[in-house]
Simulated assay, not measured.
Amino acid sequence: METLGFDLSSIDLGQWWGQVVAFTAPRWLPSLVVLLIAGVVYVVARAILGRAQRNWVTRTATRLDDLAVRLLRQALLLSSGAWAIWRLLGIWGLPTIAQWVYAIWIGVLFFPLSRFVGDFLTAIESEVVTRTETPLDKTALPMINTAIRFIVVALGVVLALSELGINIAPLLAGAGVMGLALSLAAKDTLSNLIAGVLLIVDRPFQVGDRIELWTTPNETGSWGDVIEIGLRATKIRNPDNLVVVVPNNEIMQRDIINYTMSGQDIRLRIPFSVAYESDIDRAKGLLVDIATGIEGVKGDPAPIVIARGFGPSEVNLELRVWILEARSRRSIADEISEQALRAFEKAGVEIPYPRRELYIRSESDGGSNSGP
Rank of each mutant, 00 (worst) to 15 (best):
residue 2 E to I: 11
residue 5 G to Q: 03
residue 6 F to Y: 13
residue 7 D to Y: 05
residue 8 L to T: 14
residue 15 Q to K: 15
residue 19 Q to M: 05
residue 19 Q to K: 13
residue 21 V to E: 02
residue 25 A to L: 01
residue 26 P to Y: 07
residue 31 S to K: 12
residue 31 S to M: 13
residue 33 V to R: 10
residue 40 V to P: 01
residue 48 I to F: 10
residue 49 L to S: 06
residue 51 R to C: 02
residue 53 Q to Y: 01
residue 53 Q to L: 01
residue 54 R to M: 10
residue 54 R to S: 13
residue 56 W to P: 03
residue 58 T to K: 02
residue 67 L to W: 11
residue 68 A to E: 08
residue 69 V to S: 08
residue 70 R to E: 09
residue 77 L to E: 09
residue 77 L to V: 15
residue 79 S to F: 14
residue 96 T to C: 03
residue 98 A to K: 09
residue 105 W to C: 13
residue 105 W to T: 12
residue 109 L to Q: 12
residue 114 S to G: 09
residue 116 F to L: 11
residue 124 I to P: 08
residue 125 E to S: 11
residue 126 S to G: 03
residue 127 E to N: 02
residue 130 T to G: 09
residue 134 T to H: 13
residue 140 A to G: 01
residue 144 I to D: 00
residue 145 N to F: 12
residue 146 T to D: 13
residue 148 I to C: 01
residue 149 R to S: 15
residue 149 R to A: 14
residue 150 F to L: 14
residue 152 V to R: 15
residue 154 A to M: 14
residue 156 G to D: 08
residue 157 V to W: 12
residue 157 V to N: 10
residue 162 S to Q: 15
residue 163 E to N: 15
residue 164 L to W: 08
residue 165 G to K: 02
residue 167 N to I: 04
residue 167 N to Y: 06
residue 172 L to H: 00
residue 174 G to P: 00
residue 179 G to V: 11
residue 181 A to R: 02
residue 182 L to F: 12
residue 182 L to G: 13
residue 184 L to D: 01
residue 186 A to F: 15
residue 188 D to T: 13
residue 192 N to T: 14
residue 193 L to C: 12
residue 194 I to Y: 07
residue 195 A to Q: 07
residue 206 Q to S: 13
residue 208 G to T: 03
residue 212 E to V: 05
residue 212 E to N: 04
residue 217 P to G: 06
residue 223 W to C: 01
residue 223 W to N: 03
residue 225 D to C: 00
residue 226 V to A: 04
residue 228 E to W: 09
residue 230 G to L: 03
residue 244 V to H: 07
residue 246 V to Y: 06
residue 255 D to L: 12
residue 260 T to R: 06
residue 262 S to R: 11
residue 272 F to T: 01
residue 275 A to N: 04
residue 276 Y to T: 00
residue 277 E to L: 00
residue 278 S to V: 04
residue 280 I to V: 14
residue 285 G to C: 02
residue 292 T to Q: 12
residue 293 G to V: 04
residue 299 G to A: 03
residue 300 D to V: 13
residue 301 P to I: 11
residue 307 A to H: 04
residue 309 G to N: 13
residue 311 G to A: 10
residue 321 V to K: 02
residue 326 A to E: 08
residue 331 S to N: 05
residue 333 A to P: 00
residue 334 D to T: 09
residue 335 E to L: 12
residue 337 S to Y: 09
residue 340 A to I: 11
residue 340 A to S: 10
residue 341 L to K: 14
residue 342 R to Y: 07
residue 343 A to C: 12
residue 344 F to V: 08
residue 347 A to T: 02
residue 348 G to P: 06
residue 357 E to H: 00
residue 363 E to M: 00
residue 365 D to Q: 00
residue 367 G to L: 01
